[in-house]
Amino acid sequence: MIHASRLTKIYGDTDNGVKAVDGLNLKIESGQRVALLGRSGSGKTTLMNILAGLDRPTSGEIIAAGKSLFELSPAEIAHYRQTSVGIVFQSFQLIAHRTAIQNVELPLILSGMNAANRKQRVDECLERVAIEHRRHHTPAQMSGGEQQRVAIARAIVSKPPLLLADEPTGNLDSLTADKVTQLMLDVVAENKATLVLITHDQNLAKTCATRTIHMQDGRFISDEIHAEATA
């Protein structure tokens, strides 16, 4: 469960800076699939970065994995990212000179898992996202869809309880986007993970999420819970 209260993020100085997130309160139950909708600059990505422990709020707090996130030391925050969060980025964010296998195993290397276990887990993940035939290819040798599959494999390889996806289909054609969306939903279901999906696509939100939150100027303007997602 994630519980955020009075979250504010101001870029620049406190008086004249830009308020990206403005006093948000949010509670996400475990296993919930939440879509954050809004136009560019509405504060979606900033909120996601705060939830991922990548960015610190100017004020407010988040309780995640039973801990007050911003009372943790930098090393503890890094450990939180390592074990509790998987992130899928719009631009994939794969390391260019590393192959698919090497990209996917990176979170496991960071967590200190031994090579044999690592190999088994990576193979499983690559197979799960149906990209095992590209295991020794670098990102430059793969299509956008293939790269995003590798990124999803990397995000789920540690079996994190929270999966954050920032416009995961934004750079893909519609057919590939559908496939990637389905894959993501499948792995979330298999892992019983919580999904926070950031998108400006109403249809995608409806397809993926059981809860949709609209944001504007750093605030929630609506928060709807659906009976069941269509996917």
């Binding site: 991922a52 990548l54 930098p74 090393a75 890094a78 450990h79 939180y80 990212r81 390592q82 074990t83 992130i87 964010q93 794969l94 390391i95 260019a96 990176l106 979170p107 960071l110 967590s111 990397r154 540690s158």
Partner: peptide, 16 residues
């Protein structure tokens, strides 16, 4: 720089 950013987003500590 992006590579180190990715590593940190995946849980790499400053020390690592």
């Amino acid at each position: 720089t992006p590579e180190f950013g990715i590593m940190k987003s995946l849980g790499a500590s400053d020390g690592q």
